[in-house]
Amino acid sequence: MSDFLVLGGGVIGMMLARELSDAGADVTLVERNQCAQESSWAGGGIVSPLYPWRYPPEVTALANYAQDFYPSLAEELLEETGIDPEFSPHGLLMLRVADQEAALAWAEREGRNVEKVDSAFLYEKEPDVAPGFDQALWMPKVASVRNPRLGQALRASVQQRKNIRLLEDTEVTGIFHEEGEVLGVKGKQMVFAARRTIICAGAWSGPLMQDLGLDTSIKPVRGQMIVFKAEPGLLNRVVLMDGRYLIPRKDGRILAGSTLEYVGFDKHTTEDALYSLKQTACQLLPALKNCEVEHHWAGLRPGSKDGIPYMGEVPGYRNLFVSAGHFRNGLVLAPAATRLLADQLLGRSPVIDPEPYQPKKRLAAP
């Protein structure tokens, strides 16, 4: 019997498995498909919430910790696995921001770096951005990672640890419990037992908890993205405008995203989204009109009402824990979410106050 059974092999599930195994625990990690192939793969990899001042302080606390942690994590994974997550600390430019004063006030309050810059600064940084902008907001400390590579590195890291049992292509059909005590999970062909079970299944966390009589309001939210095949140097840092963004990769490719669609567990792409994403991207960076759209895909975010994740013990069920509902910020918050829940599971002093994220405060026991 494992000490911990982690349901979900996304970035958060894999980071948590690593953290628990490094503390000496035996961990079983169960993933319904392949690790890091859902929202962890499909997102853009910006290591910051979009317009971070618009989020509640509970999200800000996690984001601040995670952003400061990512440089060492990327370096550690590269050294450990030989796979480069492509951590790119080149900053974020935001155009046409209506609430600039709120952003600057938030930055001063939180000790984060946000600067109002003029057009000369903007076009020196990114000369190929469309002409006509007279100012921007600049966040020099914001980075991005190439999230598919991050997922590959985490998977390789998990596989190297002898006290982690990785089970992919293993669908969980329910939580196995007796008289309020969770003993493990039921699969299609067998039962997996553990002393403690943690739900980290992204958008699929909602249905698993619904089966236990708990309404988390965690629902899938589709996001569509495209990638242009461009030459290196056309864009060198993340640029954000009107909720849409462009993200450069080291090989020159440029990601454009993303949509926000409530269509259930439907990952189909649409021609309307393709047209809209291309139009926005070319409006922001006109040279993309001459670049091929190499790929168009969709992923499912674990949407929640306020974007504040549930992290802690599930009310009404002993030995059952959850880390879910991170909405658009799963990758952004992953190091902090991992550390916070691991601290609770291992009885350590928490690095962040766990109370605002406790399911018992936000969910009624069945």
Rank of each mutant, 00 (worst) to 15 (best):
E101Y: 02
K305P: 00
G243N: 08
G91E: 11
S119Y: 05
V238W: 07
P286F: 02
F121P: 02
L260H: 12
G24D: 11
R339W: 02
G257P: 07
E79G: 13
G13M: 05
K186S: 10
T280L: 00
E168A: 12
T197N: 08
I308E: 09
S88I: 03
G132A: 05
A25S: 15
G151H: 13
F121H: 15
H90D: 09
N147R: 03
S276V: 06
L167R: 15
V314Y: 08
L29H: 04
K162S: 09
P140T: 01
D251L: 05
G206P: 02
D22E: 12
A120W: 05
L92W: 10
L274A: 14
I198A: 03
L240T: 00
A61H: 04
R348A: 02
A136Q: 07
V30M: 08
V117P: 02
G8I: 07
W297D: 12
R244C: 06
Q210E: 13
V117R: 05
V27W: 09
K186D: 08
E124R: 08
Y245D: 09
G187L: 07
Y55A: 09
L62W: 03
R161M: 10
M190T: 14
P52D: 09
H90V: 00
H296S: 10
G299N: 11
L235G: 04
N64T: 10
Q135K: 06
A36C: 14
P49L: 09
L274V: 09
V158A: 05
R301Y: 06
G13F: 03
I175P: 01
A365G: 03
G347H: 09
E108F: 04
K229M: 02
D306W: 10
L16S: 03
M1Q: 13
A336D: 01
L137V: 07
L50Q: 08
D84T: 03
D272Q: 15
A153F: 06
E355P: 00
W41Y: 12
L50W: 03
L16T: 05
G151A: 13
E313G: 12
R18K: 12
T60H: 12
L214P: 08
Q152L: 14
P315I: 04
A153M: 09
R244N: 13
A287C: 08
R249T: 02
S21Y: 01
V227E: 14
V239T: 13
Q159Y: 00
K278R: 09
H90R: 14
V185N: 07
A105K: 10
A203Y: 00
G45F: 02
V59K: 03
T269N: 10
R301H: 04
D169T: 06
M14L: 06
H326F: 05
V239Q: 10
R149C: 02
K250Y: 05
L331V: 15
A98Q: 13
G10F: 02
S48F: 00
P354G: 11
I199A: 13
G303T: 07
F121G: 04
V238F: 03
P350A: 05
K278Y: 01
D3F: 02
L167P: 05
G111E: 06
E171W: 09
K125I: 03
S72K: 15
R253A: 07
R222A: 11
T60F: 02
L260A: 15
V97K: 04
L5N: 04
P131F: 11
L277G: 04
T173A: 04
K125R: 15
